[in-house]
Design a protein around this nucleic acid. Structure first.
Length: 415
RNA sequence: GCGAGUAUCGUCAAGCGGUUAAGACCUCGGAUUGUGGUUCCGAUAUGCAUGGGUUCGAAUCCCAUUACUCGCCCCA
């Protein structure tokens, strides 16, 4: 095998033994979100490149260097790097603003980002997320955060860190950015290369630089004063305070992380992340926030909105593998035709069943049965003659000769 | 785009310059051609990512290439 074709970098096969775990988290998502009145939406995996440029933002890394973009019939197409923009596009295009508010949607599926893969990061990865349109008040923020926590609980994750912050509205955030730039102006040449870029592109990101020399600079009192100041305007501040009260009432433990700023341009006011320390350096399972201007920016009726996305691979890595269910019945027979007949008959009764297509000898068939099934059903010459089967409970080692009609009740009772 | 590490069977691996490349799991066969899951025996890499080099001799040392992993940036 000299020249086998290999999977693409940053992609992963999900093999049958792991699929059960995926089905589990998908099922829990549908359950939890629909219980809260959210309905599933499925949008295309590719969209017009412009959607992401205008939606996610021209200055973001995602749009600048991570998109899978190609030309087809003189159109620029991009594999979706996230799904909020796509859902918003569908919301606008399908006139969903005419629906009763709030409009509550959820989605799950693959996303694509051209990045160097590492722990917790792939080029094709899956997100499950929710979006809520039409509610401006912080109850919506609280419900969304609670929903994220509920979902994580439903898959068995109870003690993750919920971090929240408010990045204000475009107006007060700009003032804050300017003040940061102002106070750091003289230090600019001393900052690391990345920070030099951040200074111009996204000053908010300056704050959590990990380079020691930068950290030292940021520790200076006059700079700390600016960083720590409650820069957001009264209205934004009130929104944030209310959110905190709701969360407290719901007994959701949160931490305020002033350094939490999200990398997508569309966010305003509430942003949040849910983190685990079992994830390595890419430690956020969930990220989200409010995006009140996005619908308008994409030429829809201005509509406030909030949502989150979770990385499903990261989620999977945090929960124990769900065991593959055992087969109900493995049919043991000395005759292929009878084996097939009996197996089909059991399947028709509503039970899972297999037989040995290799036609191995009796003891091998039974060995196989004990590995994969709860029951062995013998259907050999003897049984065929009498028109019965012998059913053996493989964990109890009990065996009984019964007719096909009686078989169902045994499988049902002992299963 | 930058930095570091790793590459031996389907999987996990031992081996650290000296004739036939441990072991375990999986798979397959046998003991046991109608009673399994716990037992015992046996089979399975002319090859150690690829291409060069050093050496009497290379899975082992050197160089290059490729792939993967981890980290930076950024994000789920």
């Amino acid at each position: 095998m000299g020249n086998i074709i290999k999977i693409q970098k940053g992609c992963k096969d999900i093999l049958p033994e792991n699929v059960t775990t995926w089905q589990f988290i998908e099922e829990k998502a549908r359950e939890t979100f629909s219980k809260a009145g959210f309905r599933e939406i499925r949008t295309p995996i590719f969209e017009a490149t412009e959607l992401f440029q205008r939606g996610v933002g021209d200055t973001t890394d995602i749009v600048n260097k991570e998109m899978y973009t190609f030309e087809k019939s003189e159109r620029s197409i991009t594999l979706r790097p996230e799904n909020t923009a796509g859902v918003v596009r569908a919301y606008i295009e399908n006139g969903m603003h005419k629906l009763p508010t709030p409009v509550k949607l959820y989605y799950m599926g693959p996303m694509f980002r051209y990045e160097r893969p590492q722990a917790g990061r792939q080029r094709q990865f899956s997100q499950v997320g929710v979006e809520m349109f039409g509610i401006e008040t912080p109850v919506a923020d609280a419900e969304i955060i609670a929903l994220a926590v509920d979902y994580l609980k439903s898959v068995g994750l109870n003690d993750l860190d919920v971090e929240i912050n408010s990045i204000g509205c475009p107006k007060c955030r700009d003032e804050y950015k300017n003040r940061i730039k102002e106070v750091l102006k003289d230090e600019l040449p001393n900052l690391c290369e990345d920070c030099q870029v951040r200074y111009h592109k996204n000053p908010l990101r300056l704050l959590d630089c990990k380079v020691e020399s930068c950290k030292k600079i940021f520790e200076k009192p006059e700079i700390q004063k600016v960083i720590q100041s409650d820069y957001i305007c009264d209205e934004c501040s009130k929104h944030f305070e209310e959110l905190k009260l709701y969360l407290e009432k719901l007994n959701i433990n949160y931490k305020i992380n002033k350094l939490l700023v999200r990398g997508l341009d569309y966010y305003n006011r509430t942003v949040f992340e849910i983190k685990s320390n079992n994830l390595g350096t890419q430690n956020a399972v969930c990220g989200g926030g409010r995006y009140d201007t996005l619908v308008g920016n994409l030429s829809g009726q201005p509509t406030p909105a909030i949502g989150f996305a979770m990385g499903m691979e990261r989620l999977i890595s945090l929960i124990p593998q769900v065991e593959n269910p055992k087969l109900d019945v493995f049919v043991v027979s000395d005759n292929m035709s009878n084996a097939l007949y009996c197996t089909q008959k059991i399947r028709e009764m509503g039970y899972s069943a297999e037989f040995d297509l290799n036609n191995r000898k009796f003891s091998k068939q039974l060995e196989k049965a004990s590995k994969v099934a709860k029951f062995a059903v013998f259907y050999c010459e003897n049984e065929v003659q009498k028109n019965v089967v012998n059913v053996k409970n493989l964990s109890l080692s009990t065996q009984k000769e019964v007719s096909f009609e009686e078989l169902g009740s045994i499988l049902n009772n002992e299963r």
